[in-house]
Computed example of a mutant assay.
Amino acid sequence: MVNISYGWKDSLDKEANHWVIEHEGKIIASSRLCMISNLNIIEENYHQFGLPVTGNYAFFSRLVVDSKFWKIGLAHRMDKVRLEFIRANNIELTLAWARKERLPSLHKLGFKNLGNMSLTFGTKKEIVSAVLLDCSSLVKGKALNYGNRKELNCF
């Protein structure tokens, strides 16, 4: 649940890591990485892609960059710091969803398409791409098999 009057909060904030970039004392970019062990605690329906309900998951979310600072690499810097955290903490699978314009940058980082999902923003429904970064081969020495998908490689 999002409570706008008190900021952009939900139940995942307690288990999440947050990063910000400041310029002249103001936050110009922020991102969040949620650590989850059960897909049932997030609203997005990743079950439809045959992923195990329980696991060692991270969830990319809430990447925001002030429009005055677009196109200078801040989103990429936020992605990199989250990937460094994922590596350092032996996270097996990282989930994200993306609109069309964000998808190429996630693909460059090694995320692979799972398929499309429908999300609701206020009263508006939108189709977005669900993506996965599989690092289980680094954690356990072998890639995870899920659904009918081929093995995926970690960054």
Rank of each mutant, 00 (worst) to 15 (best):
G141V: 11
R102S: 14
Y57C: 05
R77Y: 07
E22D: 10
F59H: 07
D10I: 05
C34V: 10
L109I: 12
F155C: 04
G147C: 08
G110L: 09
L152C: 06
I86G: 04
G110S: 05
F85E: 08
L93K: 01
A75C: 14
D79Q: 11
V128I: 14
E43C: 03
S129T: 15
L51A: 05
K14C: 01
I72K: 10
N145D: 15
T94E: 03
I4C: 00
V53M: 06
H18F: 15
A58Y: 00
I28L: 09
G122S: 12
E43D: 13
T94Q: 05
E126K: 14
F121W: 02
G50S: 07
L74V: 04
N40Q: 12
A98K: 06
M117D: 06
G147H: 08
S137F: 08
V139T: 12
S129F: 04
I4S: 01
G25S: 07
D134N: 08
I42W: 03
H23G: 01
E126C: 04
K150M: 11
S67D: 13
G122C: 00
I127R: 10
A98W: 03
L138P: 01
S137K: 15
R149D: 10
E84T: 09
R102M: 15
D13V: 07
D10W: 05
S136E: 03
V2W: 09
S136D: 05
V64A: 14
N145C: 11
N17P: 00
G50C: 11
N145W: 03
E15I: 07
N56T: 07
M78L: 15
A75P: 05
I42V: 15
I91T: 04
S118A: 00
G25Y: 02
V65K: 11
A29H: 02
P104H: 01
K9Q: 06
S136I: 07
F49Y: 13
V131M: 13
T123A: 12
I86Q: 02
I41S: 12
L133T: 04
L33W: 01
V2K: 10
E151R: 11
S11C: 12
Q48L: 01
K14P: 00
H23M: 07
S11L: 11
G50H: 13
N56K: 04
V2T: 14
A143Y: 05
Y46F: 15
N153Y: 02
V53Y: 03
V131W: 04
L152W: 06
K68D: 12
W97R: 05
C154E: 03
F49A: 09
F49N: 00
L114Y: 10
N45L: 09
V128Y: 14
N145Y: 04
L133H: 04
C154G: 09
R77I: 12
L51D: 07
A98T: 12
R77V: 08
R82Q: 12
G147T: 05
G25F: 04
V131T: 11
K140R: 15
H18Y: 13
D79H: 10
F60R: 12
W19Y: 13
V65G: 03
N3H: 07
I86D: 02
S67V: 02
S136F: 01
R87D: 03
Y46D: 02
N153C: 01
F69I: 01
N45F: 08
E15P: 00
H47L: 06
E101R: 06
L152A: 13
G73Y: 03
P52Y: 08
S67K: 12
N56R: 10
A96G: 10
G73N: 04
S37C: 10
D134L: 10
L138W: 06
N45I: 02
A130T: 06
Y6D: 10
